[in-house]
Design a protein around this nucleic acid. Structure first.
Length: 512
RNA sequence: GGCCCGUUCGUCUAGGGGUUAGGACAUCAGGUUUUCAUCCUGGCAACAGGGGUUCGAUUCCCCUACGGGCUACCA
């Protein structure tokens, strides 16, 4: 019997979402959509010490910005709530008790100091992996070693305790990962993980297994860093008697630093000057603000397209995918195994592609914001024409303002280098003589201006590519920019003439 | 250290027992253009190494090397 696909994205609210986490969310979302299943958001806030205010909202905002919104979650609710693990504490207690009763878990009373001492002792004895396990537990204070009466008196006296998983000593766990195939692990190398902490809250291990069972999760899609703890989770499913409904495991390749050493981390953002957080983050403790992909001008559809291809490939040469196309093409079988380096150049290229797909109207809104900020009056038709003109040249929305502001206001400065190279006395006088011609033009359409210019230059025996840079400097202040004639048309006759006159004066002065 | 996972151009990847090992980004060169950018054309560039298996291995197996992850009362 085929179950409805149910997947979950289970971040912990310990800070801003990492871009790798976003990819995990995306893959979950894509699978859910592809099979008309449900995408669940579960907040894994089992560690009260690491709780960061605002982090949950950040997660919600990010998913909303990207349009990968959950079907169930703390915000929208759902039949399997609550969706915050901190609100499910009692549930985990109950299931932990079941394990204790079955003899698969036990109480432990060791203090942190005692645990440290145990590890030191084992290290001193050159034990390969010092851990709380089938051997060392014999030496520790737990319900397996202490007399029954002492255990109950400790429990009843309110002494802090944890519940530990009783890892079998010699078993081989085999499980099938959808990405990696069969994985085999000896339980002898595993330890007695804490299931319930002394504050009464479950650890991730217990909570995620219980919740995935209760929430009828069919696929656990998560980062590769979870692979080592998968055997523990498998055992948990077995001991609870849930093998029949155990989810499929899908461990995603990890996102690596650009230089290729280690997991992509928050620090890489500063080092390389590219964002690593999806959206801006105000750190509530340091009060620092870190801009995200959104603030740097990456479009959500570009980010999604880029992320989708980081560890997954469609198997053909298609690179550009709408979200719908991704849903259609996505499959677990085509997820790669090896770690993936984060290449911001490729992300930029995607952004450029998506900027081009946008309409002039949509693009205009970016410019309007800047124009208003700078109190520059504008005509919306004009703004759209500017966007049309600049579209092929832009990678980020910001580029429209950077390149386009000179079409709304005169240049603040003139490029000295360019003047020295291109602005000769002969061209200066020619430009002076061209001003009246410009002024007398009855149509200021780009092609008419060009026509007049060419006629004029022919008479003067001046080459077009000599004069163009000079006009461009006069109008824009520099030699690079969009089509000059188009730009002039947008600037308009009066303004263009004024700018040339101003340049003629200013540059005359600065040269003498 | 132990355990686990991985390894095709610089990067993301396709491919797969016999291929000129394909594409994209980046890069370089040429072309178009009034400049820069775009665009077009082309170039450079990869199967980590060693053993097997096989008529034949980049592809299958093993080992080594390298890379990565995990090794908490964090997720």
């Amino acid at each position: 019997m085929e179950r409805t696909i149910r997947v979950r994205f289970a971040p912990s609210p310990t800070g801003p979402l990492h871009i790798g986490g976003v990819r995990t969310a995306l893959y979950n979302y894509l699978l859910a959509r592809k099979y008309q299943g449900q995408f669940v958001l579960r907040i894994e806030d089992t560690d009260q010490n690491r709780f960061v205010p605002g982090a949950e909202k950040y997660i919600l905002d990010t998913l909303q910005w990207l349009g990968i919104e959950p079907d169930e979650g703390p915000q929208q609710g759902g039949p399997f709530g609550p969706y915050r693990q901190s609100e499910r504490k009692d549930i985990y207690q109950e299931y932990a008790q079941r394990l204790v009763q079955k003899g698969k878990a036990y109480y432990a009373f060791d203090t942190p100091e005692e645990l440290d001492a145990m590890r030191e002792r084992l290290e001193a004895a050159k034990i390969a992996s010092p851990q709380y396990n089938a051997i060392s537990r014999e030496w520790m204070k737990n319900s397996l070693t202490l007399p029954q009466e002492e255990v109950s008196s400790r429990l009843h006296s309110g002494e802090p305790y944890v519940v530990r998983f009783k890892m079998p000593h010699k078993e081989t766990i085999r499980f099938y990962d959808q990405v990696r195939g069969w994985v085999k692990v000896e339980t002898a190398t595993l330890d007695d993980k804490v299931l319930i902490k002394s504050d009464g809250m479950a650890t991730y291990h217990l909570a995620n297994v219980v919740d995935d069972y209760l929430m009828q999760t069919t696929h656990v899609i998560r980062g590769e860093e979870w692979l080592p703890s998968a055997p523990l989770h498998i055992l948990l499913y077995q001991y609870f008697g849930w093998e029949q409904v155990m989810p499929q495991f899908v461990h995603l390749p990890i996102l690596l630093k650009p230089e290729g050493h280690g997991k992509l981390s928050k620090r890489d953002a500063d080092i390389h000057g590219f964002p690593i957080f999806p959206i801006g983050w105000h750190d509530p403790i340091t009060k620092n603000y870190t801009p995200g992909f959104r603030e740097k001008g990456y479009l959500p559809e570009a980010l999604i397209n880029f992320l989708a291809l980081l560890g997954w490939s469609p198997g053909n040469n298609q690179e550009l995918f709408s979200k719908e196309e991704l849903v259609d093409a996505f499959s677990i079988e085509r997820i790669g195994k090896s770690g993936v380096k984060f290449d911001i150049q490729k992300a930029n290229w995607f952004n450029q592609q998506y900027i081009r797909k946008k309409s002039d109207q949509a693009l205009a809104s970016y410019l309007v914001v800047e124009l208003e900020k700078n109190h520059i009056p504008y005509d919306i038709q004009q703004v759209q024409r500017v966007c049309h003109l600049l579209k092929e040249r832009a990678t980020f929305p910001q580029d429209f303002w950077i390149e386009g502001q000179v079409l709304f206001q005169p240049p603040a400065t003139y490029d000295i280098d360019a003047i020295q190279k291109k602005w000769t006395p002969r061209l200066h006088y020619a430009l002076e003589n061209f001003v009246p011609i410009l002024q007398n033009l009855t149509s200021f359409a780009a092609d008419k201006i060009k026509e007049a210019l060419i006629t004029f230059l022919n008479e003067q025996e001046i080459k077009l590519n000599e004069m163009m840079p000079v006009i461009r400097i006069a109008l824009m202040g520099k030699t690079a920019g969009p089509d000059l004639m188009q730009s002039m048309e947008i600037i308009g006759q009066t303004e263009a003439v004024n700018r040339i006159k101003a340049a003629l004066e200013t540059i005359e002065i600065s040269r003498s």
